[in-house]
Design a protein around this nucleic acid. Structure first.
Lengths: 346, 346
DNA sequence: ACAATTCATGACAGCGCTGACATCACGTTG
DNA sequence: CAACGTGATGTCAGCGCTGTCATGAATTGT
C-alpha cells in the first residue's frame, strides 16, 4: 500500500539510493547497464519520487508555476489542463497563480512567488510573457521560464518561447470574409497591452491589402478583450453612415458583444451582418448563431511550453516552437446581402 | 532574503523549535504567555512554515484537494479562487483535480489521489458530493472531507457540508415570472444526477402551487446542464400548440441554449418569451438580452467549505452552513405580451 | 506533607531525497 | 611503470519540520 522509496528501488536493483536518484534525474554518469537495471526496478515497484522530499532536499521544488493575468475562464481552464498533463507525466508539481502584468513590481512579485515556493521555473502566458523589462529581470534573477506569445515579425529569440501565429490566423479569418464578398469589414481590436492585438490587426490589414481593399479608419475601433467593448464598438459601427457588412472581433467575447449589439439593433446575423471571433471558446459555440472563429488549442500549447520548461530545468537545450490557430467556419458568417447602402459605396 | 525557519523563531523567542511548532499548529498545551512571545517572534520574522518540510515530516501534507466533475469553466475558476484564498490564508497547499463522479471506483480513485499526495482532506463539490455510497467509503478510509451540496428537505447531516438552497432560489425566480403575469412557464431541467436539479424542480413546483397555477407536464423537459439541451428543449416548447410565455432554464448554459432557440425561431426575448437562468455566469451577462438569473457565489461558498475542512483537520468541531443564491433581474424577463394564444387558454 | 497526576516544554530521530565529497577501477601518458 | 586523469558509484549530512518520548514544574488528593 505504502509507496516505494528510493531505498526500496536501490536494494531491489542492487545499487545505492544515490544511483537510483541519478537515474531518476537523468544524470549522465550512469552505465547504461546499471540504468537499465534501475529502470526495471522502478517499473516493477511502481516507484514515483516523493515531491515533498525532493523539494525539501534539492535546490528547487520540482514544481513549476503557471502564471496568467487573464479574465477568460475557458482559456485558463484549458491552460491549466495542459500544464497539469505535462507536470503529471514528468513528475513535477504545478502551482497556479494570477498576477498583475501591468504592475511595475511584476518581476519582484514573481520572484517572491518563485522563492517562497522554491519553484523550478515559470510558464508565462500572455500578456505577462510580453513585459520585456520584467522578463530581463527574471532572467537576471536566474529564474528559468518559457513564454507563450504572439509571433512577432522580429522573433525575439532572447528567451525561449512557444509562439502562436496570430497574424496568420487573423489573416485567414479576414480572407474568409473577403472571399464571401465582404468589402466593408469592421475590426474590433483587443487591448493594446497584448501583442496579439497588434498581430491580429496586422493580419487584418494584410488581408485587406492582398485583396486590394482600402483600409478605412472609421471601421477600426479600439477596445479591450471584453464583451462590453464588443457591444459598444459594434454599436458605433452600426451607427456609421455606411456600416460594415461584416465585423471581425479580436476574440470571442468581443464578437459575442458585437453579436448582442447586432441583435439589439434588430439586425439579423449573418444576413444583415457577418460576425467572426477568435479563440473557439464555448461562447462561440453557444451563441446564436454560433460564431465563425479561429481555434486556438490553449491546452496543447501550454502543455508544450510546460514540457519545454521542464526539459530546460533538467539541463537540456530546447527549441522554440510555433502554432497557428485554425479557421473554424460556423453560422455567423455569410455572403453580404446586396442592398442600397452597398451600391452607394464609392 | 532567505525565509525564516522554526529554529530562527525559536531562538528569537527563547524557546525550543518544538514549542514554536505547537503554536503554529494550534496545539493546546502552551502557556498563553509563551504563545504570545512566539507569535510576536513569528510576526517579526515574517515566518511562514515550509509546506514541503511539514508534509515530509508530518502525518499529512498540509494540503487539501479540490475535487470537481463539472464542465463549467466559470464555476471552476470561481471555486478555485475561493479554495486558493482559504489555503493561502491558512498556510495550506491546494491540489486541484477533476474526477468522474459516476465511476463505480470513485471512492478508490479519490483515496489513491489522497494517499499519493498525502492530502490532508478533500473539498467535494457537486455532483461528487452527492455520491452517498462513495462518501461512506471515504469516511471509512478516514479521509476528512467537506461537501458542498444542495440543501435537501431532510438535511443529511451524516457528513459536514456547506449547502446551497437551490429550492429557495428557484422559487424566487419562478415567483418573479409569476408576478410578471406569466402562467405558462416552461421548465428545462438539469441533469438528474445533480441533486440541485431536483431542488430547483421543487422550487418551480412550489412556486406554481403557491400562486395557484396548475402544473403542466408538457412544459417540463428533461435534459442536462448543457447548451444543446437548452436549445433542443426550448425548441420543443416553442413547437407546442400552446407554447409557454416564459422559460426557466436550470442553469445559465441551458438558458443560453433556450435564448438561442428563441432567436433561431424568430422570437423576441423578452417580448415574445421571457427566459431566466441560474448561476450568474458571465453567459448570463454577455448574452443579448442579458439573463435574469440567480447569483451563486461559488468562490465564497468554496472558500467557506475549505476553511471548514482545514478547521476540521486541525481537530476542531465545525458546523454546517447554508447559502441562498440571490435573484438578479436583467433584461430577459418581462411581462407576457397579450396575444391570441393566451386568450385561448382554457 | 508526600505520592500521584497533569501540564508545559524540550531532546532527538527521521520523513525521502539530493548535494558535496570520497572512493575505486580503469585507461592514458611521458 | 609511476603519476594522473576520468567515469561510475557510494557515503553521509542535512533540508525544515513533526511524532514520540523524556523531563521537570505545578497541581491535586488524602
Amino acid at each position: 500500500m505504502e509507496s516505494a522509496t528510493l531505498d526500496d528501488v536501490a536494494s531491489k536493483a542492487g545499487v545505492s539510493a544515490k544511483t537510483v536518484s541519478r537515474v531518476v534525474n537523468g544524470e549522465r554518469s550512469v552505465r547504461p547497464q546499471t540504468r537499465e537495471r534501475v529502470l526495471r526496478a522502478i517499473e516493477q515497484l511502481g516507484y514515483r519520487p516523493n515531491l515533498l522530499a525532493r523539494g525539501l532536499s534539492g535546490a528547487h521544488a520540482y514544481t513549476v508555476g503557471l502564471i496568467y493575468d487573464n479574465p477568460n475562464a475557458y482559456y485558463i481552464i484549458a491552460m491549466q489542463q495542459g500544464a497539469l498533463t505535462a507536470c503529471d507525466a514528468l513528475n513535477f508539481g504545478l502551482q497556479i497563480r494570477t498576477c498583475n502584468s501591468r504592475s511595475p513590481a511584476l518581476a519582484e512579485d514573481l520572484r517572491n512567488f518563485v522563492h517562497r515556493s522554491r519553484l523550478s521555473g515559470l510558464v508565462l502566458t500572455t500578456p505577462v510573457s510580453e513585459r520585456a523589462a520584467s522578463l530581463r529581470k527574471l532572467a537576471a534573477y536566474d529564474i528559468p521560464f518559457v513564454r507563450i506569445l504572439s509571433a512577432a515579425d522580429d522573433p525575439d529569440d532572447e528567451f525561449p518561447c512557444v509562439y502562436v501565429d496570430d497574424r496568420d490566423a487573423a489573416y485567414a479569418i479576414v480572407s474568409h470574409l473577403l472571399q464571401l464578398g465582404h468589402v466593408r469589414i469592421g475590426f474590433l481590436q483587443g487591448g493594446k497591452h497584448h501583442h496579439a492585438s497588434a498581430e491580429r490587426l496586422k493580419g487584418y490589414k494584410d488581408a485587406l491589402q492582398h485583396y486590394g481593399v482600402p483600409l478605412r479608419k472609421e471601421l477600426m475601433i479600439a477596445g479591450d478583450y471584453v464583451f462590453d467593448d464588443g457591444f459598444r464598438g459594434a454599436r458605433r459601427l452600426f451607427d456609421l453612415a455606411e456600416p460594415p457588412t461584416a465585423i471581425f472581433g479580436c476574440n470571442d467575447e468581443i464578437a459575442a458583444g458585437a453579436l448582442a449589439a447586432a441583435q439589439a439593433a434588430g439586425l439579423h446575423v449573418p444576413y444583415d451582418v457577418s460576425i467572426a471571433g477568435f479563440e473557439d471558446s464555448p461562447f462561440s459555440r453557444h451563441s446564436w448563431p454560433p460564431l465563425t472563429t479561429a481555434r486556438q488549442r490553449a491546452d496543447v500549447i501550454v502543455e508544450r511550453a510546460t514540457r519545454m520548461l521542464i526539459s530546460r530545468i533538467n539541463g537540456n537545450d530546447i527549441e522554440n516552437e510555433g502554432f497557428t490557430p485554425e479557421l473554424v467556419v460556423r453560422g455567423s458568417t455569410a455572403p453580404p446581402r446586396p442592398k442600397r447602402r452597398q451600391r452607394k459605396r464609392r
